[in-house]
Computed example of a mutant assay.
Amino acid sequence: MTRRQGRVGPTRPRLRENGLSLFFGAILLLSLVGQAFTGQAGYNDQALDSGLPTFTLVEYVTSSQFAVDVAENWQSEYLQFLLFILLTIYLFQKGSTESKPLDKRGRESDEDQKVAEHAQPDSPAWAKVRGWRLSLYSHSLGLTMGLIFVLSWLAQFVAGHSAYNAEQIQQLSDPLGWTDYLLAPDFWNRTLQNWQSEFLAVGSMVVLSIYLRERGSPESKPVGEPHGSTGSQG
Protein backbone atom coordinates (compact mmCIF):
# COMPACT_ATOMS: atom_id res chain seq x y z
CA MET A 1 0.00 0.00 0.00
CA THR A 2 2.80 2.42 0.87
CA ARG A 3 4.65 1.76 -2.40
CA ARG A 4 1.47 2.30 -4.40
CA GLN A 5 0.88 5.66 -2.77
CA GLY A 6 4.49 6.60 -3.48
CA ARG A 7 3.98 5.98 -7.19
CA VAL A 8 0.59 7.68 -7.54
CA GLY A 9 0.99 10.53 -5.07
CA PRO A 10 3.38 12.84 -7.00
CA THR A 11 1.17 12.69 -10.09
CA ARG A 12 -1.78 14.42 -8.48
CA PRO A 13 0.10 17.56 -7.39
CA ARG A 14 1.56 17.89 -10.88
CA LEU A 15 -1.90 17.63 -12.43
CA ARG A 16 -3.26 20.16 -9.97
CA GLU A 17 -0.36 22.58 -10.49
CA ASN A 18 -0.70 22.43 -14.28
CA GLY A 19 -4.46 22.03 -14.54
CA LEU A 20 -5.09 25.25 -16.46
CA SER A 21 -2.59 24.54 -19.24
CA LEU A 22 -3.62 20.88 -19.45
CA PHE A 23 -7.29 21.79 -19.70
CA PHE A 24 -6.76 24.33 -22.48
CA GLY A 25 -4.39 21.99 -24.30
CA ALA A 26 -7.04 19.26 -24.23
CA ILE A 27 -9.90 21.44 -25.44
CA LEU A 28 -7.62 22.89 -28.15
CA LEU A 29 -7.00 19.40 -29.51
CA LEU A 30 -10.69 18.49 -29.26
CA SER A 31 -11.73 21.66 -31.07
CA LEU A 32 -9.18 21.04 -33.84
CA VAL A 33 -10.49 17.50 -34.27
CA GLY A 34 -14.06 18.80 -34.34
CA GLN A 35 -13.11 21.49 -36.85
CA ALA A 36 -11.45 18.87 -39.05
CA PHE A 37 -14.52 16.60 -39.16
CA THR A 38 -17.08 19.38 -39.62
CA GLY A 39 -14.89 21.20 -42.13
CA GLN A 40 -14.43 18.05 -44.17
CA ALA A 41 -18.17 17.42 -44.15
CA GLY A 42 -18.93 20.98 -45.23
CA TYR A 43 -16.31 20.92 -47.98
CA ASN A 44 -17.52 17.58 -49.32
CA ASP A 45 -21.14 18.75 -49.37
CA GLN A 46 -20.15 21.71 -51.53
CA ALA A 47 -17.92 19.53 -53.70
CA LEU A 48 -20.75 17.06 -54.37
CA ASP A 49 -23.11 19.90 -55.27
CA SER A 50 -20.53 21.24 -57.73
CA GLY A 51 -19.58 17.84 -59.16
CA LEU A 52 -16.03 18.08 -57.80
CA PRO A 53 -13.88 15.42 -56.08
CA THR A 54 -14.35 15.02 -52.33
CA PHE A 55 -11.63 14.91 -49.66
CA THR A 56 -10.78 12.18 -47.21
CA LEU A 57 -10.15 13.43 -43.68
CA VAL A 58 -6.37 13.25 -44.16
CA GLU A 59 -6.62 15.09 -47.46
CA TYR A 60 -8.73 17.80 -45.86
CA VAL A 61 -6.51 18.44 -42.81
CA THR A 62 -3.48 18.73 -45.10
CA SER A 63 -5.28 21.04 -47.52
CA SER A 64 -5.00 24.81 -47.83
CA GLN A 65 -8.69 25.14 -46.93
CA PHE A 66 -8.11 23.72 -43.45
CA ALA A 67 -4.77 25.49 -42.98
CA VAL A 68 -6.12 28.95 -43.77
CA ASP A 69 -9.06 28.54 -41.38
CA VAL A 70 -6.74 27.55 -38.53
CA ALA A 71 -4.05 30.14 -39.28
CA GLU A 72 -6.44 33.08 -39.55
CA ASN A 73 -7.76 32.36 -36.07
CA TRP A 74 -4.34 31.82 -34.54
CA GLN A 75 -2.83 35.02 -35.92
CA SER A 76 -5.67 37.14 -34.56
CA GLU A 77 -5.36 35.58 -31.11
CA TYR A 78 -1.64 36.24 -30.92
CA LEU A 79 -2.11 39.77 -32.22
CA GLN A 80 -4.59 40.33 -29.41
CA PHE A 81 -2.13 39.22 -26.75
CA LEU A 82 0.81 41.02 -28.36
CA LEU A 83 -1.05 44.34 -28.36
CA PHE A 84 -2.33 43.79 -24.83
CA ILE A 85 1.13 42.96 -23.49
CA LEU A 86 2.70 46.05 -25.08
CA LEU A 87 -0.10 48.60 -24.63
CA THR A 88 -0.60 47.86 -20.94
CA ILE A 89 2.96 48.99 -20.28
CA TYR A 90 1.94 52.60 -20.86
CA LEU A 91 -1.87 52.74 -21.10
CA PHE A 92 -4.27 52.45 -18.16
CA GLN A 93 -7.94 51.87 -17.46
CA LYS A 94 -8.98 53.10 -14.05
CA GLY A 95 -10.82 50.43 -12.10
CA SER A 96 -9.91 47.54 -14.42
CA THR A 97 -8.13 44.38 -13.32
CA GLU A 98 -6.57 44.28 -16.78
CA SER A 99 -4.66 47.53 -16.12
CA LYS A 100 -1.57 48.12 -14.02
CA PRO A 101 -1.99 50.39 -11.00
CA LEU A 102 -2.03 54.01 -12.12
CA ASP A 103 1.36 54.77 -10.54
CA LYS A 104 3.19 51.97 -12.40
CA ARG A 105 3.48 53.52 -15.86
CA GLY A 106 6.32 52.42 -18.12
CA ARG A 107 8.95 49.70 -17.86
CA GLU A 108 9.39 50.25 -14.09
CA SER A 109 12.63 50.26 -12.12
CA ASP A 110 15.10 47.39 -11.77
CA GLU A 111 14.05 47.12 -8.15
CA ASP A 112 10.38 46.79 -9.07
CA GLN A 113 11.24 44.20 -11.72
CA LYS A 114 13.59 42.27 -9.40
CA VAL A 115 16.49 42.12 -11.87
CA ALA A 116 20.29 42.27 -11.66
CA GLU A 117 21.37 43.15 -8.11
CA HIS A 118 17.71 43.21 -7.05
CA ALA A 119 17.08 39.63 -8.20
CA GLN A 120 15.90 36.99 -5.78
CA PRO A 121 17.76 33.70 -5.17
CA ASP A 122 15.20 31.80 -7.23
CA SER A 123 14.88 34.40 -10.00
CA PRO A 124 15.49 33.17 -13.58
CA ALA A 125 19.23 33.03 -14.37
CA TRP A 126 19.05 35.65 -17.11
CA ALA A 127 17.26 38.05 -14.78
CA LYS A 128 20.29 38.07 -12.45
CA VAL A 129 22.84 39.38 -14.96
CA ARG A 130 23.11 42.60 -16.91
CA GLY A 131 23.79 42.83 -20.63
CA TRP A 132 22.16 41.34 -23.68
CA ARG A 133 20.75 38.35 -21.82
CA LEU A 134 18.80 40.52 -19.40
CA SER A 135 17.66 42.78 -22.22
CA LEU A 136 16.48 39.84 -24.33
CA TYR A 137 14.78 38.10 -21.43
CA SER A 138 13.09 41.37 -20.41
CA HIS A 139 11.26 41.39 -23.76
CA SER A 140 11.02 37.63 -24.39
CA LEU A 141 7.25 37.38 -23.96
CA GLY A 142 6.46 40.18 -26.42
CA LEU A 143 9.06 38.94 -28.90
CA THR A 144 7.70 35.40 -28.80
CA MET A 145 4.09 36.51 -29.17
CA GLY A 146 5.10 38.79 -32.03
CA LEU A 147 7.02 36.03 -33.80
CA ILE A 148 4.11 33.59 -33.53
CA PHE A 149 1.74 36.27 -34.83
CA VAL A 150 3.94 37.01 -37.84
CA LEU A 151 4.44 33.32 -38.66
CA SER A 152 0.75 32.47 -38.32
CA TRP A 153 -0.24 35.50 -40.42
CA LEU A 154 2.28 34.41 -43.05
CA ALA A 155 0.79 30.89 -42.91
CA GLN A 156 -2.67 32.41 -43.40
CA PHE A 157 -1.42 34.37 -46.40
CA VAL A 158 0.24 31.37 -48.06
CA ALA A 159 -2.63 28.96 -47.37
CA GLY A 160 -5.25 31.56 -48.23
CA HIS A 161 -3.55 32.29 -51.55
CA SER A 162 -3.55 28.59 -52.41
CA ALA A 163 -7.18 28.08 -51.34
CA TYR A 164 -8.35 31.17 -53.19
CA ASN A 165 -6.63 30.15 -56.42
CA ALA A 166 -8.03 26.63 -56.16
CA GLU A 167 -11.51 28.16 -56.11
CA GLN A 168 -10.62 30.44 -59.00
CA ILE A 169 -9.49 27.48 -61.09
CA GLN A 170 -12.65 25.53 -60.24
CA GLN A 171 -14.68 28.49 -61.45
CA LEU A 172 -12.56 28.72 -64.63
CA SER A 173 -11.19 32.10 -63.53
CA ASP A 174 -7.59 33.29 -63.59
CA PRO A 175 -5.58 32.69 -60.39
CA LEU A 176 -3.99 35.63 -58.58
CA GLY A 177 -0.29 36.23 -58.02
CA TRP A 178 1.14 36.83 -54.57
CA THR A 179 0.99 40.61 -54.76
CA ASP A 180 -2.52 40.62 -56.21
CA TYR A 181 -3.75 38.33 -53.43
CA LEU A 182 -2.12 40.55 -50.79
CA LEU A 183 -4.29 43.41 -52.08
CA ALA A 184 -7.38 41.24 -52.65
CA PRO A 185 -10.56 41.62 -50.55
CA ASP A 186 -10.48 37.91 -49.66
CA PHE A 187 -7.22 38.21 -47.70
CA TRP A 188 -8.20 41.34 -45.81
CA ASN A 189 -11.75 40.17 -45.17
CA ARG A 190 -10.40 37.01 -43.54
CA THR A 191 -7.95 39.09 -41.53
CA LEU A 192 -10.17 41.94 -40.36
CA GLN A 193 -13.17 39.83 -39.40
CA ASN A 194 -10.94 38.04 -36.89
CA TRP A 195 -9.17 41.16 -35.64
CA GLN A 196 -12.39 43.00 -34.81
CA SER A 197 -13.68 40.10 -32.73
CA GLU A 198 -10.45 39.98 -30.71
CA PHE A 199 -10.45 43.75 -30.14
CA LEU A 200 -14.07 43.55 -28.98
CA ALA A 201 -13.32 40.71 -26.55
CA VAL A 202 -10.31 42.43 -24.98
CA GLY A 203 -12.04 45.80 -24.75
CA SER A 204 -15.08 44.19 -23.14
CA MET A 205 -12.93 42.44 -20.55
CA VAL A 206 -11.09 45.66 -19.71
CA VAL A 207 -14.31 47.60 -19.12
CA LEU A 208 -16.53 44.90 -17.61
CA SER A 209 -13.92 44.00 -14.98
CA ILE A 210 -14.36 47.51 -13.56
CA TYR A 211 -17.94 46.90 -12.49
CA LEU A 212 -18.54 43.14 -12.50
CA ARG A 213 -17.05 40.37 -10.32
CA GLU A 214 -16.36 36.65 -10.41
CA ARG A 215 -15.58 35.46 -6.92
CA GLY A 216 -12.27 33.62 -6.64
CA SER A 217 -11.05 34.40 -10.16
CA PRO A 218 -7.71 36.20 -10.63
CA GLU A 219 -9.32 37.99 -13.57
CA SER A 220 -11.75 39.68 -11.19
CA LYS A 221 -11.35 42.06 -8.28
CA PRO A 222 -12.48 40.84 -4.85
CA VAL A 223 -16.26 41.09 -4.72
CA GLY A 224 -16.22 43.94 -2.22
CA GLU A 225 -13.42 45.93 -3.89
CA PRO A 226 -14.43 49.47 -4.97
CA HIS A 227 -15.06 50.01 -8.69
CA GLY A 228 -12.24 52.55 -8.87
CA SER A 229 -9.59 50.15 -7.59
CA THR A 230 -7.15 49.59 -10.45
CA GLY A 231 -5.01 46.51 -11.02
CA SER A 232 -6.45 44.76 -7.97
CA GLN A 233 -7.07 41.04 -8.31
CA GLY A 234 -8.36 38.41 -5.94
Rank of each mutant, 00 (worst) to 15 (best):
residue 85 I to G: 07
residue 65 Q to H: 09
residue 148 I to F: 04
residue 58 V to N: 09
residue 155 A to C: 06
residue 168 Q to A: 13
residue 88 T to A: 08
residue 74 W to Y: 14
residue 135 S to H: 10
residue 130 R to H: 08
residue 59 E to G: 14
residue 74 W to R: 05
residue 139 H to R: 14
residue 67 A to I: 03
residue 64 S to E: 10
residue 92 F to W: 10
residue 114 K to G: 01
residue 154 L to C: 06
residue 73 N to I: 12
residue 68 V to I: 13
residue 133 R to M: 06
residue 145 M to N: 13
residue 172 L to A: 08
residue 47 A to E: 05
residue 103 D to A: 04
residue 141 L to Q: 10
residue 75 Q to Y: 11
residue 57 L to T: 09
residue 147 L to R: 07
residue 112 D to E: 14
residue 61 V to Q: 00
residue 129 V to I: 12
residue 141 L to D: 03
residue 85 I to K: 14
residue 88 T to Y: 13
residue 100 K to Y: 13
residue 93 Q to N: 13
residue 116 A to Y: 04
residue 101 P to E: 04
residue 171 Q to S: 11
residue 97 T to E: 07
residue 88 T to D: 03
residue 113 Q to I: 00
residue 43 Y to L: 12
residue 162 S to F: 00
residue 73 N to D: 00
residue 46 Q to C: 02
residue 45 D to S: 14
residue 128 K to L: 00
residue 154 L to E: 00
residue 119 A to Q: 10
residue 155 A to T: 04
residue 58 V to T: 14
residue 152 S to F: 04
residue 127 A to L: 11
residue 160 G to T: 07
residue 137 Y to K: 11
residue 100 K to G: 03
residue 97 T to F: 07
residue 53 P to M: 00
residue 92 F to M: 12
residue 68 V to Y: 09
residue 148 I to M: 06
residue 76 S to Y: 01
residue 93 Q to R: 15
residue 104 K to L: 13
residue 173 S to M: 15
residue 146 G to H: 00
residue 84 F to C: 03
residue 43 Y to I: 05
residue 109 S to V: 02
residue 54 T to N: 05
residue 172 L to G: 09
residue 58 V to L: 14
residue 84 F to K: 06
residue 148 I to R: 07
residue 111 E to G: 10
residue 135 S to R: 15
residue 138 S to Q: 09
residue 171 Q to W: 07
residue 87 L to N: 10
residue 139 H to I: 15
residue 126 W to Q: 13
residue 51 G to F: 06
residue 138 S to H: 11
residue 81 F to M: 13
residue 45 D to F: 01
residue 166 A to I: 05
residue 138 S to F: 02
residue 155 A to Y: 01
residue 88 T to N: 09
residue 111 E to A: 12
residue 171 Q to L: 13
residue 62 T to N: 10
residue 108 E to F: 12
residue 128 K to S: 10
residue 146 G to N: 01
residue 76 S to D: 03
residue 108 E to R: 15
residue 122 D to Y: 02
residue 103 D to W: 08
residue 109 S to H: 05
residue 153 W to L: 15
residue 72 E to A: 11
residue 51 G to N: 06
residue 63 S to R: 09
residue 89 I to D: 02
residue 86 L to A: 15
residue 131 G to V: 03
residue 85 I to F: 14
residue 66 F to Y: 14
residue 149 F to W: 11
residue 63 S to N: 09
residue 151 L to R: 10
residue 68 V to T: 14
residue 171 Q to N: 11
residue 156 Q to S: 12
residue 173 S to H: 15
